[in-house]
């Protein structure tokens, strides 16, 4: 019984130790080697807050379909939101996609 309790304690302790240790050093690794890992935030690109037009709370997921039918993508037509994007941008202005090139096209400086 004593050995069994020690085994359980050791397994539990090592699990906690591994979790704490990995948590500490993964944060340190992130700070140390993952440099400049940030981008613009909502505040940088928006002119205010999100205007929530609908808020609801449900006990089950069965209302999900109804929620998206009323407020999701298919409702945007009814609400007059959908528009033809990019009629102003003529694709002829922009070159075709560049094919992959595996050989250097340019001579190095000598």
């Amino acid at each position: 019984m004593q050995i069994f309790l020690w085994m359980i304690s050791l397994a539990f302790g090592l699990f906690i130790g591994a979790a704490i240790s990995l948590s500490i050093f993964s944060k340190k690794l992130d700070d140390s080697n993952n440099i400049g890992d940030s981008t613009s935030t909502f505040d940088d690109v928006s002119s205010g807050m999100v205007q929530f037009t609908h808020r609801s709370t449900y006990d089950t997921t069965e209302y999900k379909t109804q929620f998206f039918r009323d407020h999701g993508y298919n409702s945007y037509d009814r609400q007059g939101i959908k528009k033809d994007n990019f009629q102003q941008l003529d694709d002829n202005d922009i070159p075709e996609d560049i094919p992959e090139v595996d050989i250097p096209l340019f001579k190095p400086l000598t």
Partner: peptide
């Protein structure tokens, strides 16, 4: 990671043994 896990792990094992 291993050294820290072992040090914390052993300390937690004693605490767990006491609680058990």
């Amino acid at each position: 990671v291993v050294i820290t896990a072992l040090v914390i792990g052993v300390a937690c094992a004693f605490a767990a043994r006491f609680l058990l």
